[in-house]
Write a protein that binds this DNA or RNA. Structure first.
Lengths: 349, 349
DNA sequence: TAATTATAACTAAACGGTTAGTTAACACTA
DNA sequence: TAGTGTTAACTAACCGTTTAGTTATAATTA
């Protein structure tokens, strides 16, 4: 409602000045000093009776903090982008912070617009899903730098050593899959990743996964097609029917005994292709995905995959961001966290 | 940064008062009157040079509006809860509004806390995912009513005719599935919905789907087990392995030629069960889901389902909410929109 | 030419908090 | 008893906008 209860209203009823009321009702630490117990409880009671709600705009204007974080994402970049948001919301909630979403379709103009909006709104900090933006360049990072505090969710490609981030080791995840396949006796392992070619270059997670595959293969003493990295690059995101065909061709030509797909969706399509060719998984070909999406448990057969453990990851992001905002950790010292994902073994391998 | 450019800074450089600057830079309609073209362009130029960003907290405090919407959800209630959020964010963006998320795990205390927080933050309006909250009662709705403008995403159970909502016809969706099965020659159709029993009663979508099934069956002149509605109620959300077993038992006992599952996840599990029993879909049993989740295209075989068309639905929600906020439609006249979902026919039927 | 209207600016007062600096009363110490 | 410290309050100024009301000048009308 418009006729809100204000500090002065309570002050009048309690017979004190509004500053005294503010001291009691303001949660900021160490501010409750110098108010007598009796006055404080009287004020608290009146505030509860009137259902007082602080006007956060006023508080922000005077105090300079908003208890609000901005989060910059690209929903189209990954099916679990919102998992990250959801977990971040919950983590922030613990500290009394809220999140506002910027959804920017990987468009530079939108990214800038949202960063400006975040600044206008006076958010205390910003989370940027770095991996969603191959277009993220030094220029954007500088714009972002004008904000009070920025935390990158995954290490940005243009990191110069000064940025704060929490990164999940995509490469290590794929490497674990390769080693797992090797232990299961597979030798002709193929990495299947029909990516769109971005005008801005590869996604970081993309090149890291390829590197992880290469490392895993050579660690196991296996060979891999040297051109695998550029093999399936498309000018746009290929549609499922195209991917099915691609997968079928691949299986017929290369006759692999194991396929590691770029992600679970892709793996589901590979399962499809195997099925269509009258072959069986894992008997003829083992398959693995990446991401541990909700449906991966229900594929036929249930999919072996890698879980980034987004709940824990998001919590690290938010915890560290808020710690910096509230100066509980040194502000000038960059946060650089690498985290290992988890292998989920099911029935496709 | 803390040393922001302010209206007065621009005013000083332009040699005018800050009010004149505000008139030029404030986007509110009809406010640009009475400023000469030359002055306006000079101000605009200076503002651009200094990279002026309005302080929205100050604007909100003085102006009474925030260009911010709150959205109250329960991420656990549905795998596509965040689809709704994502589409709402995009729709709101068109009008220059932002969203802040309240994720409240269907807990009354959290719901109240978030509604209070929204009020404190002075959001211009609130979207409540009514279907996520079977616990949504008149009391909560009243609390919500203290907010400026509230739009329910799906009709709340406790609607008394005065609430604003945009509702998708779940019942009609299931009915379409029944009729589709009937046209395909199926006669022993079963509705498979292992729901958790909520202490607050059924989800609205749940009872509506059951009603839709019943209507569809009788419209086709088919019989259905009269106890179907209460047949699979659990004390908690059953885990996938339990559902597989349940589905296998069901198929063995009732020998249906078609199963309509409560949603796509459930349908994927039914496909699993059919597979395990050595039967084939759709040859032996046709299967359908509901929701058209991303993976439903990749199940084996691809799943027939119903699509709520969340993009369009979300747009209706946001469009109408903002129209009310900006008084472009009568404020005292409730918005009550029902929308029909879309049948997606694939290869399981 | 005097009166009226329109234009383009201005000043002052909110909006609801926070922060810094001040004061009165009282208790303790030297 | 004068000086010092502590407690619990207060007053004044400020945060960056918006809104309402006012004024000086120029253009139009009678």
């Amino acid at each position: 409602m418009s006729n809100q209860v204000r500090l002065v209203d309570i002050a009048k009823l309690a017979g004190v000045s509004k500053v005294t009321v503010a001291k009691v009702l303001n949660p900021s630490p160490g501010n409750r000093t110098n108010v007598s117990e009796t006055t404080a409880s009287r004020i608290n009671q009146i505030a509860a009776e009137l259902n007082y709600r602080p006007n956060l705009a006023a508080r922000q204007l005077a105090g300079g903090w908003s208890k609000m974080l901005g989060i910059l994402i690209d929903a189209g970049s990954s099916p679990n982008e919102f998992q990250r948001v959801s977990h971040s919301v919950r983590a922030a909630e613990q500290y009394g912070y809220r999140l506002t979403i910027g959804e920017c379709h990987n468009d530079l103009k939108n990214i800038r617009a949202y960063l400006n909006d975040f600044a206008s709104r006076g958010v205390d900090g910003v989370i940027i899903h770095a991996n969603s933006f191959p277009s993220l360049n030094a220029d954007i990072v500088k714009t972002a730098g004008q904000l009070k505090q920025v935390m990158y969710y995954d290490q940005p490609i243009c990191d110069d050593g000064t940025l704060d981030f929490v990164h999940v080791d995509f490469g290590g995840g794929v490497r674990m899959l390769v080693e797992h396949m090797h232990m299961r006796g597979r030798r002709k392992i193929i990495y299947f990743a029909p990516y769109p070619r971005s005008p801005y270059g590869k996604f970081r997670s993309q090149s890291e996964r390829e590197r992880g595959f290469a490392e895993g293969m050579s660690a196991c003493g296996l060979k891999f097609a040297p051109d695998f990295a550029g093999r399936f690059l498309y000018d746009r995101m290929p549609v499922p029917t195209e991917i099915i065909k691609l997968a079928m061709d691949l299986i017929r030509q290369d006759k692999p005994d194991a396929i590691i797909a770029r992600n679970d969706e892709c793996a589901a399509i590979v399962l499809h292709a195997i099925n269509k060719l009258g072959m069986r998984c894992p008997d003829d070909i083992a398959v693995a995905g990446y991401d541990n999406l909700a449906f991966s448990e229900y594929t036929i057969p249930p999919l072996t995959t890698v879980d980034n453990e987004l709940a824990e990851l998001s919590k690290l992001v938010v915890d560290n961001l808020i710690a910096k905002i509230e100066k509980k950790i040194p502000v000038d010292q960059p946060v650089r966290i690498y985290r290992t994902p988890k292998l989920i073994i099911r029935e496709t391998t």
